[in-house]
Every structure is written in C-alpha cells, then in structure tokens.
Amino acid sequence: MEAVVVKNLTKTYGKEKTVAVDNVSFSVNQGELFGLIGPDGAGKTSIFRMLTTLLLPDGGSAHVDGHDIVQDFRAIRSSVGYMPGKFSLYQDLTIEENLHFFATVFGTTIDENYHLIKDIYVQIEPFKNRRAGKLSGGMKQKLALCCALIHKPTTLFLDEPTTGVDPVSRKEFWEMLRRLREQHITILVSTPYMDEASLCDRIALIQSGKILSIDTPQNIVNTYPDRLLAIKANEMYKLLKVLEGHPGILNSYAFGEYAHATFRDAHTDTHALQVYLREHGLTGVEVKDAEVTIEDSFIKLLH
C-alpha cells in the first residue's frame, strides 16, 4: 500500500522559470520512514509544500493517501501532519496552550490522541506552563512534533526538523521518529545531514531539484561502484594535495580524520600507495579499506 505517490513532479519559480523541482518521481509505502536527503536549495521544501497542498505544481502529479494534491487538497489537509522548516510555534504561548490550540484547530482533543504523543510529551510535561519562547532547541522540537502529531495524522511531513540543532538533540529526535514508526504513521523527513540518512527505511538523494538515487540506505552503500580507501597521515592538507597529484586517482576528499580516495585501478596496491605517500614527505601514513557511507555515495553521484 502506497501512502505517497509522486509522478514527474515539477516546480518553477518566478518569471525566469527557475527550476526548483525537476521531474521528480518516487513513492512511499504506508508506515515507512522515508528520507529526502540533500543540501539547501535542492528542492526538498518545494516538494514538501506541494505534497502538503501549499504550492501548486507546474507539472506532474502526486497523491497523498490516495488524494490528489490539487483536486482533493481539503481531504489531504485534514489527514496529514506537517512541521515546516522554520516552524517556531507560538513563542508567547505555553507548552500546554500551544498543544491545546493545535489540537482544537484540528478538531480533536489532547486526551483523544494522548497515546500518540505520550512518549514525547512526558519529557516536556514538567515544563508545560513555560512559554515556548523560553524552551531549549531540543524541547521546542519535541513540542513541535507533539503539535504535528496530536490529530493522529496518517502521514507526517517533517521539513528539516534537525537543522541548526546540536548533535545530541538530533540523536534524540531520530530516536523519537524510530519509535513513531510503531504507530504505523508514514513519515517523510528531509535533512541536509547525510549521517541521518542511515536512520531511514528508504532515502532519496536529491540535488538541484533532481533525484540522484532512491533505495534503502544499505543498498545505496552496497552498490558503491569503486573500491574506497581510507587514508590517514599526520598532515591532512598535505595528504589531500599529494593524493590529488597521484597518477591513478579518481577522486579524493577529506572524511573526518581520514581522507577517502578511489583509484582507477580497483586493485590498487595499498602497500605501494603507502610508499608513494611517504616518498612525498608524509608521516604517520595509514591505508585501509573504508566503510562506505551515504555521504561517499552522494559525493560519487555528484562527481
């Protein structure tokens, strides 16, 4: 059963017809946690806004829970939950007032769907009389998620919920999303952080309005075509320069404390490479096979 079906969706802006979303197609199964992964300006927000009926597409079509995003926008509006990117709640209302307000606007009560938000809400309940403006980033996020969930949506759209949030709060947020899947809510989430991709059931890598690849994170990583080496040296910048100059190099870039590199010859002799690097004045050289990540795949797709 498919909760979201997108076919050749296109969106342009302004007189110059700047293309924001370019012929995008994908579908999301019911109960799936689906990630739209890409940098700012890739078109993630435009896709979300079209699916939540806030924008009209310039081409293509899409259905959410079987409803057409143009014709049946009312039906979609009463069934989905949405958390916009810059969403900041009502700063001058307390946690409880915010939640109560959104529950009422969506024609429900907190009690009716309390089971859905219970896990999250108990964490912020001790501060329920505090105004949203005085909450920490992580707490605001939890409250926003509660507000988006309170009417028991069939599908939840979360647009960059973790942008600008520190790594600890990001981790907590993803744990909450994983738990929500048990409630059989379909979740679409967008993020510019590649490391969050592995937490989704399936992901679409997106850049400049185009989808580069759609699959499970594992499959995307498994189908990485080249042999990826992780190389370390005491002088990172020099290491990158030397690798760039290597005659057999395909691509090389910094990756945490290592540099990741691919070579034309899949069977590059790692020992010879070490010698080459030392000859070029590097110390503390270490070469090993790298564990491919989504970020490597993304870089490969962009290259």
């Binding site: 942008t163 510019p192 850049q207 290259h303």
Partner: peptide, 22 residues
C-alpha cells in the same frame, strides 16, 4: 557554522579554502 546546509562536495571545497588560509 560556515557550512550549514551545504552539499558534501562544496563543504569539502570550503574546507580546502580553510586549509589554504591556515
């Protein structure tokens, strides 16, 4: 936070510039 929301390739080009400056 100079690289927030930037794609991974550009992020690395950005760090190249940082290395150069250093």
């Amino acid at each position: 936070e100079p690289t927030g929301g930037v794609d991974p390739v550009t992020r690395r080009q950005f760090w190249d510039m940082i290395y150069q400056a250093a």
